[in-house]
Design a protein around this nucleic acid. Sequence first.
RNA 1: GCCCGGGUGGUGUAGUGGCCUAUCAUGCGGCCCUGUCGAGGCCGCGACUUGGGUUCAAAUCCCGACCUGGGCGCCA
Length: 419
Amino acid sequence: MMNSKNTDMVEIAGWVHEIRDLGGIRFLLVRTRDDIVQITFSKRKVSSELIDKVKTISRESVIRVKGIISKDERAPNGFEVIPNSLDILAIAKSPLPLDPTDKVVAELETRLDQRFLDMRRPKIKSIFMIRSLVVRAIRDFFYKKDFVEVNTPKIVSIATEGGAALFPISYFDKEAFLNQSPQLYKQILMSSGFERVFEIGPIFRAEEYSTRKHLNEATSIDIEMSYADDNDVIRLLEELIIYIYRYINTNADRYLKTIGIDLKIPTRPFKQVSYDEAIEIVNLEWGDDFGSLEEKKLGSVIGEHYFIREWPLKSKPYYTMPLEKDRKILSKSFDLMHPRVELASGSQRINDYELLKKQIEMRGLNLDNFSFYLDAFKYGMPPHAGWGLGLDRLIMTMLDLDNVREAVMFPRDRRRLVP
RNA sequence: GCCCGGGUGGUGUAGUGGCCUAUCAUGCGGCCCUGUCGAGGCCGCGACUUGGGUUCAAAUCCCGACCUGGGCGCCA
């Protein structure tokens, strides 16, 4: 919001971040989207009319100031503005529900209740400025790789994968659900010949969990790629993660500084462990799934991003390509793990109609519900692979946030529906 | 769904039966102050989630409700 009118005159509009009144001199710190600028009202240099006006301003009021830039070593960042005019655009009521200057840090719950104010804080705003840049990096990456960006329906008739609970909604006279994943649709698009698609969109899970890593509405980055296998999309995922980290490191330096993060860029290739190796490390029986404790242990043993590959077929969804190895029924599947949390999971998919039907039936699901999906496999479905990556968790792990809700502007969790 | 914590001014806290007309910080109001940048000094304002119970006496102990933090399960 700093528009230089000529070399000296500036106009600044923003919130009154702090007021320091020393009697004969009064400092207003005005906060714009990206900066905090000091406006200095001294009796010597500013009219008494303006001095009287500035006395009526409360913290977090919105003002517009026109004045002259003055270099002064005593000012923060070495300059300040000596005002010629002052418009009070909106007076803020008092007391404030929380303190945007970080002198007293409110709890997350209070902050989320007053999210509009919370996001005025430079640290919090920086999270979302970075999140925007991450999304930009993702689009950048996929467009360069000749992917097509798509939008699939969020109102659907059936569960995508079983497993997670769905939110039922009423769709005129029919029952419908909020989609838990774009999985089925992005696969159908492979049959339509788009070859490489990606989508950045919301997914909904009705699980009643209440943890630091779960949301009931999350943002998923999903891709699907024809003529690719699990290895191909693993490489692509690695490449994307590193692209994002690099992009943020070079384009979001100021925001990283504000948050106080020194971003370490992961190195390729990421470590890989097979499911069999992983259960060995954490002492599980073959066929067991990893609990939180095991996930933590694996994370601390490996210490950086890694893949867990070749999961037992039965612990992955029906569309996962089977893999027979050492007389065990595994799958061409993988999870991308951060030491703290799972970030992504993917696989090569089944593209054979009969095999897919068999896998759906084996899981006790009703084939009739899947006809719109299965039809796409009847008339020439290329081999393909893909994955889904949780954007919110990616931001959480990248910026070392304690709670995934910190990475979402208006999070939806077990209890929170407002704001 | 299970287990363990917690609800004290606007915000963040101290306080484990009487010393509480409740601590401290921040904030807000007033006064002083021309270089603040966690401004400072003085004065003032503002709170025990809720319903029962125990007790001479409850912020404090017990039970319920509501809200809430963490862990587990499940999940991405």
